[in-house]
């Protein structure tokens, strides 16, 4: 009596299936979130309502529970969900489906033989949503909204590895704002912040979605450009340079001009890891500065 009430009132999906995959019990949580009433599904095959579950992987886990009496787990990390349902409330905007953590275990008869198995379904959408936000926060520069250095290193390692494996082009731009300190000194820090934000906006509108802009340090930026030859990278760098130097900046009622210098490095025989790529881009940037700033090297 008490347990029957718990079965229907607990804030978890619970269902019981027999050895033939016929649904025996289906709690209210499952009914509410799947839109399938218990009296519809009980007595029919689970796979008739959820054909996507009929896969070797799911069947293997069911068999092991029925045979060995062990428990199986379907993590959100791998599966995202077992039962397609919509995410609750406002989370539905960012998730196509409710994210679920599911487990499965044996139910025994009087002789201790495993006769049926239960599946429990836990809604973890909210937790996953927080995790996603944390990951984004951890990879984002607070001021400009572009990627930060936490993001750069592992991303660069992966891109270099991928482009080397498939023998594809890849370039890296290192960007420094010329005489940025003077903007801060002359117009104040809020204006310096504005300049950095505007520079990022102008750069972003001149690169592809597959390129990633990273705030490397105070006024230093870096762009990882997959599938980009040295020639193409140079072209993009020129466009970016002009987008900064050719249009004045306006903050409050102050108008000023600024310029950037860019160093270009491209993946090749001698430049084939993170360290050598960064070093080459840095050296190129240094010569751009030496040659009088507002230039690409």
């Amino acid at each position: 009596m008490i347990f029957a009430q718990i079965f229907d009132t607990i804030n978890n999906g619970l269902l019981v299936i027999d050895r033939e995959m016929t649904v025996k019990y289906w709690n209210r949580w499952m009914a509410m979130h799947s839109g399938i009433a218990a009296d519809e599904i009980v007595g029919t095959s689970l796979f008739s309502y959820f054909p996507e579950l009929d896969q070797p992987h799911f069947r293997r886990n069911c068999k092991s529970v029925l045979q060995f009496g062990n428990f199986c787990y379907f993590s959100q990390r791998l599966h995202k969900y077992l039962f397609p349902m919509s995410a609750p409330g406002s989370l539905a905007d960012s998730f196509d489906h409710m994210q679920q953590s599911c487990s499965m275990g044996p139910l025994r008869n009087k002789d201790n033989k495993v006769e049926m198995l239960y599946i429990s379904v836990q809604d973890v959408t909210e937790v996953v949503s927080y995790q996603k936000k944390l990951v984004i926060m951890n990879h984002t520069d607070q001021l400009t909204g572009v990627y930060n250095r936490n993001y750069m290193e592992p991303h660069l390692v992966k891109e270099i590895e991928r482009c080397r494996r498939y023998d594809h082009n890849m370039s890296l731009l290192m960007i420094d704002v010329d005489l940025f300190k003077i903007i801060n000194d002359n117009y104040g820090h809020p204006c310096g912040d504005y300049a950095l934000k505007t520079i990022c906006e102008r750069i972003t509108s001149n690169i592809r979605k597959s390129d990633s802009l990273i705030r490397y340090g105070g006024d230093e930026f870096c762009i990882i450009m997959p599938e980009t030859s040295e020639k193409d990278a140079y072209k993009v760098a020129e466009t970016i340079r002009k987008s900064i130097s050719d249009h004045p900046f306006t903050f409050a009622d102050m108008t000023f001009n600024t310029t950037i210098s860019i160093g270009v490095a491209t993946l090749d025989q001698s430049t084939d890891d993170v360290e050598s790529m960064l070093k080459k881009a840095d050296e190129a940037l240094y010569s751009a500065k030496q040659s009088g700033r507002n230039s690409v090297t």
Binding site: R60, N61, S64, Q67, F68, G69, N70, F71, C72, Y73, S103, G105, R108, N112
Partner: peptide, 26 residues
């Protein structure tokens, strides 16, 4: 997943022979 099934199979058989049954942590 492989670990879970291997562990479950071995412990399941031991406890079956000894008339016990067990539950597991993930």
């Amino acid at each position: 997943e492989v670990g879970n099934i291997l562990i479950g199979a071995c412990i399941g058989k031991i406890t079956e022979l000894l008339s016990d049954f067990v539950t597991y942590d993930p």
